[in-house]
Write a protein that binds this DNA or RNA. Sequence first.
DNA 1: ATTGTTAGAGTAAGCGCTTTCTCTAATAAA
DNA 2: TTTATTAGAGAAAGCGCTTACTCTAACAAT
Lengths: 364, 364
Amino acid sequence: MKKKGKRCRLKVIIKQALSFLLHSITKDWWSMKVTIYDVAKEAGVSISTVSRVINNTGRISDKTRKKVLKVMEALHYQPSMVASALTGKRTRTIGLIIPDVANPFFAEIARKVEDRGRELGFNLLMCNTDNNAETEEMYLSLLKQKSVDGIIIGTTTKNYTVLNELLQAQFPIAFIAQDIPELAINVVKVDDFLGGYQAVSHLVSLGHKKIAIMLGNLNRTSDKDRLHAYQQVLKESDLEYDENLIVYTDYSMEDGKRAARELLTSSQRPTAIFACFDSLAVGIYQAAKELGVSIPEDLSVVGFDNTILSTIVDPPLTTVAQPIDEMGRQVVDLIIKEIDGEKHIKQRIVLPPELVIRQSTKRL
Amino acid sequence: MKKKGKRCRLKVIIKQALSFLLHSITKDWWSMKVTIYDVAKEAGVSISTVSRVINNTGRISDKTRKKVLKVMEALHYQPSMVASALTGKRTRTIGLIIPDVANPFFAEIARKVEDRGRELGFNLLMCNTDNNAETEEMYLSLLKQKSVDGIIIGTTTKNYTVLNELLQAQFPIAFIAQDIPELAINVVKVDDFLGGYQAVSHLVSLGHKKIAIMLGNLNRTSDKDRLHAYQQVLKESDLEYDENLIVYTDYSMEDGKRAARELLTSSQRPTAIFACFDSLAVGIYQAAKELGVSIPEDLSVVGFDNTILSTIVDPPLTTVAQPIDEMGRQVVDLIIKEIDGEKHIKQRIVLPPELVIRQSTKRL
DNA sequence: ATTGTTAGAGTAAGCGCTTTCTCTAATAAA
DNA sequence: TTTATTAGAGAAAGCGCTTACTCTAACAAT
């Protein structure tokens, strides 16, 4: 009575007083959290035995196991993951840091990641940062505080400090659609160079000579790679490289629209644009419509991502497909492999893109 | 040495041996999880004192507080939320159950909910169920096991059993864009009847007489309300009510497309369709395009939601706007109020919709 | 000078589990 | 029959924190 003092007070007294009812009552009407102690007492065994049947570890006689299981069911017992997390087990939760779920590309990624996570018994803590470094840093350390088992990052991190700390702490981290070449990290991404190459080649093969490229900032390796591809195709095709046709913007529709408006009204109006994200491409559609430029007659557009957007716009957008399904699946597998710690080696998985030709591009 | 046996072993020995370095070293290179004990020892106080400065409770002299804070910083100490959750404090995590983040409507909701949650210091555990009852039930109990502080539901639950259990257990729950009229629960939603009324009235005012409605299943109160509005407008306008113009489907683009194809090729082809979700409307656009039916010339379409989709399609979609921002904000506020337990009264918050007229509707 | 307060800080129990030991009884080996 | 094993289960420590309670020294009141 002294030892487990508090535990022995009101709660237990009531439980005991009513325990005779427990066998016949299946509904958890009383809803006082039932713990492993309650199960143990009710089953007449020790908590360690109960723990063993929960985790299916150690040796237990079949009779005991059955008895405990029955009681667990009768009491509607559900082990507290908080408690088990405290004693060293995983939280079975992973953090997902992305710029913005409202952006279809990331929404689709989030969906796939969650799906795979669920299959493997992990939940997703979703964090939107708008690529804001502070928010990102906040989340990074918050997630650690919450003891998530790992973090999947899809944002343009520049938080090398925090990141390095986590990395050094052996904290499981994996990047999706995003890379930091100078770090030994887990990455799953599409082959951006190849994707860019396919996109621009396609345009060139259609006879376009004045091809613009619209991209985010160069901190993103993916953007950089796509730009390099663009440059290389131009060079290989002996096309003139015009600085004015390189447009830096952000990643939203509005950004694309703004940039496109400028581009389309300039004296150097291109006949084709390679937009590094579908969302930018949509912005281009809108600007074009405003300006009476018709796609693909007056302007060919190639996007990147192959999100749902590309099938919705009119005309359907020719775009470079990222294997979002596969990517989502693989990051999760990657990070869980690291979580399980089976002498995991950090690796980069680069998946092939696929040019999906629809109706936004036309021979000149 | 016996009392805190394990705690006093290798880890602490190493820590002590190296403690003289701690003042000068700011990087957490050694990355052994630093606990409240380390801070206490380093600061020369008891853990309860450290706890007090962390939580800013009880009385502490300024001198002590400063000292402790300094050590916390030096050691890069971050309290474990798992541990504090076990001792009765909140996990500061709420669960969000929706059908599918890849659906723009829910993606936008998820975003707003997360934003407000972040402002208030809560994280979001995201769960996609595809409206599958089993998945939903699984999540419901999993979230409880993970001790989330509350659950926001945006799916068409039929899990009255589990739900009732949670409700009876006083577990904080709030619904968004979704209601179960026969239960006393927290709900934030748009006025579906009014929205439907606006949509159909608009169509009627444009001279349409053969108006179809496309909706999900009637388990959703929202769909039911919109249908009732449809019926009421028809009645008020003395228009013929034709069962064949009521189309039940699901909520995805594909569903909309399929249903629209049928509707548009039937002998009873309507001149206007009220789609209960933007996604369905987009499906209609696609079917219409396939069939050479032009919008709005041959067919007027009104959507519902006002997601990003409605501005992307061509022509821009006339739709009933849900105040997603406000809704997201309010559910979070609602549920947090219940979490904080300030004698919270369950309530339904019904927000006004707004008909946004774009170019998908035309006078007959 | 004596007693009463109280500010400031420490002690220790407890949260609900996991896990290492330890112990007992039953079975196998001698 | 005696001893060695071992299957099965309990005891107890510990995870990192919160908090009720206790204690002490300093100051105020008498």
